[in-house]
Simulated assay, not measured.
Amino acid sequence: MSIQSVRRKILKLIPAGAVGAFVAACSGAVQNGQNKSAQTTQSTTNSPATGETITLRMQSSWPVKDIFHEIFLDWGKKVEAMSGGRLKVNILPAGSVASATQLIEAVDKGTLDGGHAFPAYWFGLNRAASLFGTGPSFGMDAEMMLGWIHYGGGQELYNELIQTKLKKNVISFFHGPVPTQPLGWFKQQVKAPADFKGLKYRTAGIALDVFKDMGAASQFIPGGEIVSSLERGVIDAAEFSNPSSDEGLGFPDVRKVLMLQSYHQPVEMLELQMNKSKYDSLPPDLQAIIKYATMAQSADFTWKMMDRNSKDLETIEKNGVKVFITPKSILEAQLQAWDKVIAKESADPFFKKVIDSQRAWAKRVASSRLEIMVENKTAYDHFFKEAQA
């Protein structure tokens, strides 16, 4: 009996209403098989072969004891988890391949696939780099500065700076809004702007000029060398970043006065860099994982810093460090110095382009934030001040 005859007999046994469904099911199975085949082909085309792992070789700018190095490691773990192991990140300690200020060169040349740093470290290449985290606040905090990066044109301006003006084969992802950086660590309490006259003081980026205007002999020293420089008397005082970083690096061992709050760096944020050619060579889903893992790390960073900074500040005080709030007269002197620095540096068209963009964003966003967000000191004092007295 022929196959055709068998097929006709089978169809005669199936109720008429079900024949269409039977044929459609058979057709659907064929179509589904074709779709799965196409999906498999597409998946194979856009991703590494089964079992293949891409390893990114990156370097930190931070001493291994610094919480920023820990944050970089946290990001690497997120990338590996989100990619299901298709992306591995080999994070090298600071100085393994390049110094902090030379990291961008190593990433540009492909010696490293990426790195983790502050944009102010490229200040020597173009002074406008300092505006991406170490510029004037215009009433913003670091969260609002990140808002400018993502929604106010900041990312595009940074791409223009790094890729067009500096001609670096580098793509950057901003994250990690750093809490307002302390005025720093001193031998004794700083009470007035005049106390900065002749002070050998470590800071970074364009804040160097702010403190020079206030009379300080300011200079840049990499994070891992600051404590030894204080110990040897190379500098008198210094700021680095936050209570957790400072405590981990050993600042309380060499200075017993910590001045909190300052306008020199209240909008700092972290920068993840990648060699652009390496990034562009990755499948689209892995590119997306790198981008969105950085955003996820930004949130995780914020929460971790709340926890760790508060605990580490308590530890610092318990270990005999006297903590003071920076006097308003010093804050006002910083703002006056910023006026002069902005006026001078704005002679450069690109610097002015960036500063004007930030000012416009801050005027709208900081204003609305001040109106919307309730002042919290009154509530804190109500619930806790009397109990602490």
Rank of each mutant, 00 (worst) to 15 (best):
K318Q: 14
L87W: 14
L161R: 06
S228Q: 07
S368F: 05
L270H: 00
A288E: 14
L313D: 04
N309D: 11
D113N: 11
Q163C: 05
I162T: 15
D108I: 01
L270D: 01
D74R: 14
I289K: 10
G85E: 10
K377V: 02
M145G: 04
A337R: 01
A293E: 13
S229K: 00
I355A: 15
Q34D: 14
E317Q: 13
F351L: 03
A288G: 13
R7G: 11
V210P: 15
A16H: 15
I316A: 10
S245K: 01
G85P: 06
V190L: 09
N169D: 15
E52Q: 11
K322Q: 12
I290L: 15
Q189C: 03
G205V: 03
G176K: 02
K322V: 13
L183G: 03
I67W: 01
A379N: 12
M140L: 10
N169A: 11
V97M: 12
R57N: 12
Q297C: 08
V365D: 07
Q102P: 00
R232K: 14
P63G: 11
E156T: 14
S329V: 13
P252C: 00
Q39L: 07
L230G: 06
K256H: 03
R369Y: 09
S229P: 00
V321D: 03
P349T: 06
K328L: 09
M295Y: 10
S172A: 12
D356N: 10
S137M: 05
T203P: 04
K212S: 12
N126M: 00
T203R: 00
M140Q: 14
V227L: 07
S298E: 11
G84N: 04
R359V: 02
I325F: 03
S281G: 13
A366T: 06
L125G: 05
I289F: 07
N46F: 12
S99K: 11
S281E: 15
A204C: 08
F383A: 04
K165F: 05
D209Y: 12
S367Y: 03
K344Y: 12
H116D: 08
K9V: 08
P177Q: 09
P283K: 10
P349H: 10
A204D: 04
Q261R: 13
A16I: 01
A237M: 08
T294K: 01
D74W: 03
M269E: 06
A387N: 06
L270N: 02
G20F: 09
K187H: 07
Q155P: 01
Q287D: 10
G20C: 05
E225N: 09
G250H: 01
L157N: 12
K311D: 09
V323G: 06
